[in-house]
């Protein structure tokens, strides 16, 4: 089992999410999470895909993904060089333990965004491990309901995937696009 996070720039066209999902289904690649949203460019959407690869090679997955005409650029997002975040909304009904929960919330740098009928709704943003740890810490107080976003990731510093699109550089091959080891390679 090996986990990889991919950032994928796609044309903001109808059906593009279905194309990506269809490819993953057809080739039996396992997705842990997929988050998609708009970017600074209204023509381009960005997907962050967390893959759980068993028996598949990352380069092969990236090459297959890149064959989709609407896929503009792909890059792996290694944890060392990128910022990775998930969002959690969770409802807890702590009863007498309200103060304990509140201190927990503070410790995890999360916040209570709603309190109604003795139910606290807590919002947390963080790396997957932090979110998981918060959930474990809250579990003894009873998790009434929770929702988690897929992971999103962005490279640190000046590096930007959008600078590496074909149109941005007028480059004729994907082979040349990658300037880091983790980029797609032939």
């Amino acid at each position: 089992m090996s986990k990889h996070t991919l950032a994928v720039l796609v044309e903001n066209s109808p059906g593009v999410l279905a194309r990506v999902a269809s490819l993953f289904s057809r080739r039996a690649y396992n997705i842990d999470s997929l988050a998609v949203g708009p970017t600074e460019n209204s023509d381009i959407s960005r997907m962050t895909i967390v893959l759980n690869l068993e028996g598949h090679v990352l380069e092969q997955v990236m090459a297959q993904l890149y064959k989709l005409v609407n896929v503009i650029a792909i890059s792996e997002m290694p944890t060392e060089t990128t910022i990775q975040r998930e969002v959690l909304l969770v409802k807890v009904e702590p009863g007498a333990a309200r103060d304990e929960v509140l201190s927990m919330v503070k410790r995890f740098e999360s916040k209570v965004v709603d309190e109604e009928d003795g139910v606290l709704t807590i919002e947390a943003t963080g790396e997957s491990e932090i979110i998981a740890a918060l959930l474990e810490a809250l579990r003894p107080y009873g998790l009434k309901e929770l929702v988690q976003s897929g992971l999103v990731a962005l490279e640190r510093g000046r590096a930007a995937l959008s600078d590496r699109t074909l149109s941005a550089q007028g480059i004729s091959t994907l082979h040349e696009i990658g300037n880091t080891q983790t980029d797609y390679q032939n």
Binding site: V10, V69, N70, V71, L166, S167, H175
Partner: peptide, 12 residues
């Protein structure tokens, strides 16, 4: 011009 489609013709 297709942003995501430019097959490589010349080999490395």
């Amino acid at each position: 011009q297709l942003a995501g489609y430019k097959p490589q013709v010349e080999p490395d």
